[in-house]
Design a protein around this nucleic acid. Sequence first.
DNA 1: CAGTGGTCTAGACCACCAG
DNA 2: TGGTGGTCTAGACCACTGA
Lengths: 230, 230
Amino acid sequence: MSGMSHAVLRESFKNRIVGGEWKPGALIPAEEILASDYGCSRTTVNRALQALAETGLIERRRGAGTRVKLLPVRQAQFTISVVRDDIEAAGAVYGHRILLNKKAPAPAYVRKRLHLSEKAKALHILTVHLADGRPHAYEDRWVNIAAAPAILTAPLAEISANEWLVREIPYTSGDIAFTAVQVTQDVAEMMETPAGAALLCVDRTTWLGKKYVTTMKLYYRPGYALQTTL
Amino acid sequence: MSGMSHAVLRESFKNRIVGGEWKPGALIPAEEILASDYGCSRTTVNRALQALAETGLIERRRGAGTRVKLLPVRQAQFTISVVRDDIEAAGAVYGHRILLNKKAPAPAYVRKRLHLSEKAKALHILTVHLADGRPHAYEDRWVNIAAAPAILTAPLAEISANEWLVREIPYTSGDIAFTAVQVTQDVAEMMETPAGAALLCVDRTTWLGKKYVTTMKLYYRPGYALQTTL
DNA sequence: CAGTGGTCTAGACCACCAG
DNA sequence: TGGTGGTCTAGACCACTGA
């Protein structure tokens, strides 16, 4: 075969679904049958069907066969990058300004997320990320010093905390949430936006195993859109 | 073997990366070597490594080997469901109210997205989605009548346009974008929110092949968050 | 029970990359 | 040129489903 046949099969199957030949809820022929229809091995058919199942187009159950999903489940996938990459990918020059960098008693929501004790202090860092010198995002971050002690001596003027942490502690797990918030007066000034503007906010907490490293809220400039294709 | 060995391998590889044994940028042993190390076939190792490559943890190149990514690429994945499912999954009772449902000349941005001619009309539908009787989301939708003529006779009082379209024309492709917007006066009234509130907006266009079916803006109630785990 | 998908294996061929 | 990952194959065993 051509060496790309699992991709070819996937396309063909998808077309038979989209084209209405295999209707929602209907059973798809068994792997063995498809294999002989297409003149390839069952392994190849299996691979193509598993890929379609991952995208939510079909549903497979051992013993019960493969069905076209009644309501396809759409998965929107976004690539979360470092802010600098995001800006540079748009062809702008990156810069950042640190507004605050000091140890302070962590507020309740931070203590909860980072699993800190009542009176624990954490490193509070406020940063404005700039694209071509203009504010692009405002970052409000708390770092668990115990989980990343080297942050205290990191050269944050040269490399943003965001990026430093990704480099220093890669391969973390994390929670992420997208919300819309109305800027507060002080953030509006930093971001040079009208008071009351609506900003897209990314709220993220990351950990490595049992070490809860950092939690952050990132407010994007007005009009920023997170886009993808389904 | 246990019958789950590709998942076991994947975990093991991930741990060796997270644990620092395989450092960022470093070359990972070749598939054949790993296969003999773990006492399994190369096919199984290949499957585990391909899965890790998809998650962005490693990078593989024919001829050049497999490396741990210097900066792991994080993929945030959201499941896009019908509004009703969203509400019912949260344990609330779904309802909806149609505010408008009529043919009208499409504005420029709609004509562009649906590939309509200058003077084309399209169906304009405004809906408020309710959770336990309270506004949950406001939907501003335009439907290309040529692409879905049956919409004109759809029982929209019983089934929302959102859901009707998904049922009638499943398996479409689409664009989707998330932004934050400040509510306008009229939307604020419909949503029973204070004027000027920030809302999370989902802006979506869907098509099937060359038939551009519909475009929609969905404004969620204040405080709504789109969440996932990385 | 027969049929289904999930998985693993051993072997093979190829495209690609580096030295 | 030798080693790498990408892919396909044929065969096998198993867990699960439904009649």
